[in-house]
């Protein structure tokens, strides 16, 4: 199947991956060849077959009870930038 470079650019944007033109071109070719292989799945008759989201029959839940967990300090210690006990990021809104 053919996959356009614009489609690949759109997927990269959805996936939050900043890629240069060479990488986009390479992935365009490779993904097209992989998706070609996947096309054989359409031959399978799946009428009436339910989807399997997991290998498990059921996923038991536990009671939602508060209990001790990791501290704020534990959670911040791997961050690139921290301020006042919080993760620091560039401004989300432009200053007026």
């Amino acid at each position: 199947m053919s996959l356009s470079i614009e489609e690949v650019r759109h997927i990269a944007a959805l996936a939050r991956l900043e890629l240069d033109e060479a990488a986009l071109t390479r992935y365009c070719r490779q993904l097209a060849s992989i998706l070609d292989y996947m096309a054989r799945l359409r031959q399978v008759d799946v009428s009436g077959v339910p989807p399997a989201g997991s290998a498990l029959a059921a996923c038991p839940l536990r009671p939602d009870q508060p209990r001790p967990g990791l501290t704020v300090a534990d959670l911040l210690k791997n961050a690139a930038e921290v301020e006042a006990g919080q993760f620091k990021i560039p401004p989300v809104f432009e200053a007026e």
């Binding site: 944007a13 959670l75 690139a80 993760f87 990021i89 560039p90």
Partner: peptide
């Protein structure tokens, strides 16, 4: 790039991530 691991600079959170 925000909660753990190295971070590359960017002018917005989206740019930092991508």
């Amino acid at each position: 790039g925000i909660r753990y691991g190295p971070r590359l600079a960017g002018s917005s959170p989206q740019e930092v991530m991508a």
